[in-house]
Amino acid sequence: MGLLFGSFLNVVIARVPAGESIVHPRSRCPRCAHQLAWYENIPVLSWVALRARCSSCGLPISWRYPLIELLTALLFLACQRRFGWTPELVAALVLVLLLVPLSFIDLEHWILPSELTWPGIAAGVVLSWPMGMGRVRDSIIGAVAGFLVFWGMEWLGEKIFKKEALGAGDKDLLALIGAFLTWKPLLAIIFLSSLQGAVVGVAMLLIHGRAGPAPAPEPAAVTPPATAPGAETPQAGEPGPAQVAEEQAHTREDAEEGEEEEDDWEPGPTNIPFGPWLSLAALEVMLLGPWLRGVLPEPLDLLLTGIR
Rank of each mutant, 00 (worst) to 15 (best):
Q243N: 02
P225R: 11
G58P: 12
D106L: 07
H109L: 06
L283I: 08
A211L: 09
E262R: 14
L187Q: 05
G58D: 09
A78T: 03
A14V: 06
L71D: 02
I190L: 15
C79E: 02
G240H: 04
A242N: 09
L181K: 08
S55N: 14
L95P: 05
A211S: 14
L95N: 07
T117D: 02
G268D: 13
F147L: 13
L67M: 07
E253V: 09
T305E: 12
T86Y: 03
R252L: 15
G289T: 10
L74A: 15
F104Y: 13
D172C: 00
I111Q: 12
L192I: 15
T72C: 10
R51K: 15
A78D: 02
L206P: 00
L3S: 04
P25K: 01
V149Q: 03
G169N: 01
G134S: 12
R293Y: 06
V94D: 00
S56Y: 10
R82S: 08
V144E: 03
L280A: 14
E253L: 14
S128V: 10
S103V: 00
L89S: 09
P213S: 11
I22M: 09
P290D: 13
I141V: 15
V295L: 12
W183E: 09
C29Q: 03
G132A: 08
R82M: 06
L304T: 08
L206D: 00
L71G: 02
L67R: 03
A123R: 07
S62N: 06
V100F: 06
L195E: 00
L302I: 13
S193W: 04
V94R: 07
L74Y: 05
L186H: 01
V149A: 12
F150M: 13
M286G: 09
D106G: 03
G58A: 12
A165D: 01
L59S: 08
G209D: 13
L70D: 02
T305K: 10
K162G: 05
I207N: 00
L173S: 07
Q80D: 05
M153T: 05
Q196N: 03
I177A: 05
S194E: 01
L50K: 06
L195S: 10
E108R: 14
W291V: 11
T227I: 15
N10S: 09
L89G: 06
I121Q: 06
A231R: 11
S103F: 07
M153W: 11
V100G: 05
E253M: 12
Q196K: 00
R51I: 04
D106I: 05
A179K: 01
R137Y: 14
T223A: 14
L4M: 09
W265L: 12
G212F: 10
I111M: 14
A175S: 15
W110M: 07
A145L: 15
L186M: 10
I121F: 04
V94H: 02
L300H: 13
A282V: 11
W151C: 00
T117Q: 07
V11R: 00
F150S: 01
W155R: 14
E247K: 11
P219K: 11
S27M: 01
A78V: 02
T86V: 03
L99K: 02
D264P: 15
G268S: 13
L176M: 15
G152N: 04
C32M: 07
R82A: 10
R81W: 08
P267G: 07
A14W: 15
